[in-house]
Design a binder for these strands. Structure first.
Lengths: 173, 173
DNA sequence: GGGCACATGTAAGCTGTTACATGATTAA
DNA sequence: TTAATCATGTAACAGCTTACATGTGCCC
């Protein structure tokens, strides 16, 4: 595929747990070509900007071997910073109403995510070329679904707490 | 508190959704002091390394105002890269057994997290100084708990799928 | 007296994003 | 014809981590 298509695929299929920008993709493709991990089909790197004919890349045997090598390396679990939870942690300074707004927005996003996962499931089911990959791809979708449902459940619980806090604050003034 | 204590607090209390390294904390404290957002109590920045007497910092009124200003700004929801899900997405190249190992490890980490959250809950309940903050702090703990429980449920479901895949692969050879 | 937790800072470097520049092709 | 999408790339820079340097105080 083209570099542009790589980015679209990452955004649409891996979007809920991965992202890459053009600033990473194009230099990386060039580097992978130099080291023989991918094969370029189409015009060579022009050095010029703008379009000539799109260059399509395919992974080579050597590239696939390197992929397997990298996949086998342990994933270091990185802490994910959550701007939402940081705001809620300081919620006393923000006030219950503002916190409710944040939680409601988060709940809505999680619901949208659930709808998106339904779409992705349909896409994966329809893609016959990826049949052997299907069960693995579905594992990642299921992870997203579980996370999104947990977010909705947490939001509902939290909104009840915040309602109570808002009522207390309202009555004390 | 001291810069060292700030880091310990972030690690122990916000650890499941935030992190800061010394490389961020010390320069930031110096900058906050310059702009009057925190008040240093104890020896001035020596420029020298090593310890003299620990310097303790306290937030000023101006610093608190700035905190509220920052909290009110919208949190841009960043995509969290998951090395685990990336590996599972390419699970066909990794094999069912290796995937099972990854999922089992993830499940174990989630269980450890649940135990940790129980500790944090106890700490928060015992801290009388933070009584007004308590409900907000508990919201962030609840978020962690929901996420961890979802991870365990997803792992159990996924392990059943992977068992089936491993059996199929075993029988076809 | 040895090791660990407490404590402070700097510098190098890595990762990744954003913004910009450029232009072809296609659908409205 | 005009806007959107496809397409390729570079450069600046933001953010953050790691490694290093340096020491104190306390407990075993």
């Amino acid at each position: 595929m083209t570099g542009y298509a790589v980015r679209a695929a990452i955004r649409d299929v891996l979007g809920h747990f991965w992202s890459e920008s053009f600033g990473q993709i194009y230099p990386t493709l060039a580097e992978l070509e130099r080291s023989g991990k991918v094969q370029r089909e189409g015009p060579a790197t022009s050095g010029t900007v703008g379009r000539t004919r799109p260059a399509k890349f395919a992974v080579t045997e050597s590239g696939l071997a390197r992929l397997r090598e990298l996949l086998a390396q342990p994933a270091r679990p990185a802490v994910t910073r959550s701007g939402l939870l940081l705001r809620l942690f300081f919620g006393r300074h923000l006030g219950p109403a503002a916190c409710q707004k944040l939680v409601i927005e988060t709940r809505a996003r999680a619901q949208e995510q659930l709808a998106h996962y339904a779409d992705v499931r349909a896409q994966i089911a329809a893609d016959e070329a990826g049949e052997a990959d299907r069960p693995y791809w579905l594992l990642t979708v299921a992870a997203g679904e579980h996370a999104a449902r947990a977010t909705v459940a947490w939001a509902d619980e939290s909104l009840r707490t915040l309602d109570r806090l808002a009522a207390e604050q309202g009555s004390s003034r």
